[in-house]
């Protein structure tokens, strides 16, 4: 066992080992493309509009993005594992209603009620996906519809709006610390925690392995069922938390905001470089993707003449661009 093989070709070229240049560029684009686009967009926005690069506007963007970001953290886990969670938008709304309703019984109930319900639904979805092998798309679509129904039942078809009657709970959504609201700090903490979980633990690597090749993961001894269940549980819990925090911020359980939010979340994750096919991606990208959507929204507001629905056109264009780029990168990597 003394001879050395060059791994690229199997021939005996004594080239210095390391990543190929093309490979490195592809890697960079996939994982940090959103961050680069974000930086460019911010610079362009700052040059074009005086009122864009103000601390106030930056804080606005960050605060309004934080709820999307919390859900996107969970979604990143799900998508990397090769799944999808369409139920998060409904979870978010339901959690808001439940939190507002629970707030009359105190802070603890206001938090635990939505977390328990959304966590339980995530858990059940995970169990169904992992145990029966049903398509996550279908299972979580059922979850979406079911939770929407539940929310309508709890709120009397939306006629009944629960107001938050608990100052401690409201503070969770509204109080500021160092110029940023509590949800922003929670988002930062969760993103860090999620990053460590994903990159630096066996659990995280198992998530990547399952998304990369579930068959190989099984043969490598990964506890596939448990990991999948956990991933949907995390997603449900985070959607519930985001919904609760949003209710605290608005001091009420609003029943119309947040419907269809799952699509924005998925868009942010994909723009962040996580592949819908699973096995690849990360949270830095997702955070950049979320912020990019927020910045686009803000810029369009600055332009003023354009209605905010134009934001969706631009976001959609970005999404298309990202998917096409990924396709090209993927093909280039195949060829190399």
């Amino acid at each position: 066992m003394t001879t050395t093989t060059d791994a690229d070709t199997g021939t005996d070229t004594r080239r210095a080992p390391g990543m190929l240049r093309r490979e490195r560029i592809g890697h960079l684009l996939q994982h940090h493309g959103a961050l680069m686009v974000l930086a460019v967009t911010v610079v362009v926005g700052a040059v074009a509009f005086d009122s864009f690069a103000t601390p106030q506007n930056a804080a606005n963007i960050v605060v309004s993005s934080s709820f999307l970001a919390i859900i996107a953290i969970g979604m990143t886990f799900v998508i990397i594992s090769g799944g999808i969670d369409l139920s998060v938008g409904s979870s978010f709304v339901l959690a808001g209603v439940l939190a507002a309703y629970g707030s009359r019984y105190g802070l603890l109930v206001a938090l635990l009620l939505p977390l328990t319900v959304c966590g339980a639904i995530g858990l059940v979805q995970g169990l169904i996906v992992a145990r029966t092998g049903m398509a996550p798309f279908i299972v979580t679509l059922a979850g979406l519809l079911g939770m929407r129904g539940l929310m309508l039942a709890v709120s009397d078809e939306g006629a009944n709006t629960y107001l938050v009657r608990n100052d401690a709970f409201s503070a969770l959504g509204q109080a500021s610390f160092l110029g940023l609201t509590v949800p922003v700090w929670i988002t930062l903490g969760l993103a860090l925690l999620g990053g460590v979980l994903l990159q630096r633990t066996g659990f995280g690597q198992n998530v990547y392995a399952i998304g990369g090749s579930e068959e190989a993961a099984v043969l490598m001894g990964v506890p596939v069922t448990r990991v999948k269940v956990l991933v949907y549980l995390i997603s449900g819990l985070l959607a519930g938390l985001a919904g609760a925090l949003n209710a605290a911020r608005l001091s009420s359980g609003v029943t119309i905001l947040g419907a269809g939010m799952e699509l924005d979340v998925i868009a942010a994750v994909v723009i962040g470089g996580t592949l819908l096919t699973g096995g690849s991606g990360g949270l830095t990208g997702t955070m950049a993707g979320v912020l990019l959507l927020g910045v686009i929204q803000s810029l369009i507001n600055q332009i003023g003449v354009l209605t905010s629905s134009f934001q969706q056109v631009v976001s959609g264009a970005f999404l298309a661009l990202v998917v096409v780029t990924q396709r090209i990168l993927h093909r280039a990597q195949r060829l190399s």
Binding site: T201, Q205, Y208, G212, S213, A217, L219, M220, G221, G279
Partner: peptide, 24 residues
């Protein structure tokens, strides 16, 4: 411990993570 004929490892993951998955 087994080397199967068809699939064994996860193509997208790094060599190191494939080698040591579960024993990091």
């Amino acid at each position: 411990s087994t080397i199967y004929q068809e699939v064994n490892l996860v193509p997208q993951m790094s060599l190191a993570h494939n080698l040591l998955l579960g024993r990091e």
